[in-house]
Design a protein around this nucleic acid. Structure first.
Lengths: 145, 145
DNA sequence: GGCAAAGTGGGGAAAAGTGGGGTAAAATCA
DNA sequence: TGATTTTACCCCACTTTTCCCCACTTTGCC
């Protein structure tokens, strides 16, 4: 099974470029889809995984205002990114703002996608603390974890 | 899969012209259909997609007064636009008013169409959206997304 | 240490975006 | 119908952004 693993730190430069960790590049094959994540981060998908998801979303009825918003939000915040000669992608302004990206990044493999976090935002999330929250652990238990 | 992606900001000039983002131009091929959007924005369709949409709408039963009004509104506010030498289209007055377009625009890819928003209207719309987000995720789940 | 690969920064050419002038076509009105 | 005004459109010019390429620094590994 193909999956993205590991955590890396890197920087974004003045031209909105960030180097995709070399370990992830082979799996992406020169290009990738960059999208808004469900949390305050960005996702990198392979082309195949993105298209699978896009096809599902494309089938939603446009007569429904909520779905129109969702479609707009999803496609409007997705970008096809080609890696440059140095293995970097360009992060568009709208996505950069969404993820509160300043300078330092944390890039982490999350199974079928790569997540890009602002270092500051990521630091706020602490797993050890979360695991002490009984509401959360109850929720986990329902899934046999 | 061919689709419109990404969000861009641009301006409309004193001659009612706006530059179509370069990324979208190739897919449009020199001309496009400009229509009134379902929300307070305008849509740009490719010729093929417009015709597909138009065929669906034209097939609505004319015996129904609601549909008659919808058909009238749709075709009455559709315009064939040719891109000029700089890749710009002209926005007619009626559509400009409908979308409350002043000067600054937000242009966003939304799968099979491009949406043109007044920057101010879009900002208000996005804010309102934030409020409703949690309810909406429940609705999405019914579609396995 | 020394080499290779990865990460980072920046210059410069090309493309995209924006504004405006001039002329032709269309609309308006006497 | 003819004269005047308005609108549309083609072209040029300037500014901003993007992207390709090169170079330096850092990291990892033998």
């Amino acid at each position: 099974m193909k999956m993205f693993l590991g955590t890396y730190t890197n920087k974004i430069d003045d031209k909105n470029r960030m180097a995709v960790p070399a370990k992830f590049r082979d799996q992406l094959g020169g290009k990738c889809m960059l999208t808004k994540g469900f949390d305050e981060c960005l996702y990198i998908y392979t082309m195949e995984d993105f298209e699978e998801m896009a096809a599902k979303i494309a089938a939603l009825p446009q007569s429904d205002a909520d779905f129109r918003e969702f479609i707009r939000d999803f496609f409007g915040n997705s970008e096809l990114c080609e890696l440059d000669g140095q293995g970097r992608i360009k992060i568009p302004q709208n996505l950069r703002e969404y993820a509160h990206i300043n300078k330092d990044l944390v890039t982490t493999g999350a199974m079928n996608k790569v997540e890009i976090w602002s270092a500051e935002t990521k630091a706020d999330f602490d797993l050890a603390k979360k695991m002490k929250d009984s509401k959360f652990t109850d929720k986990l238990r329902e899934f046999s974890i």
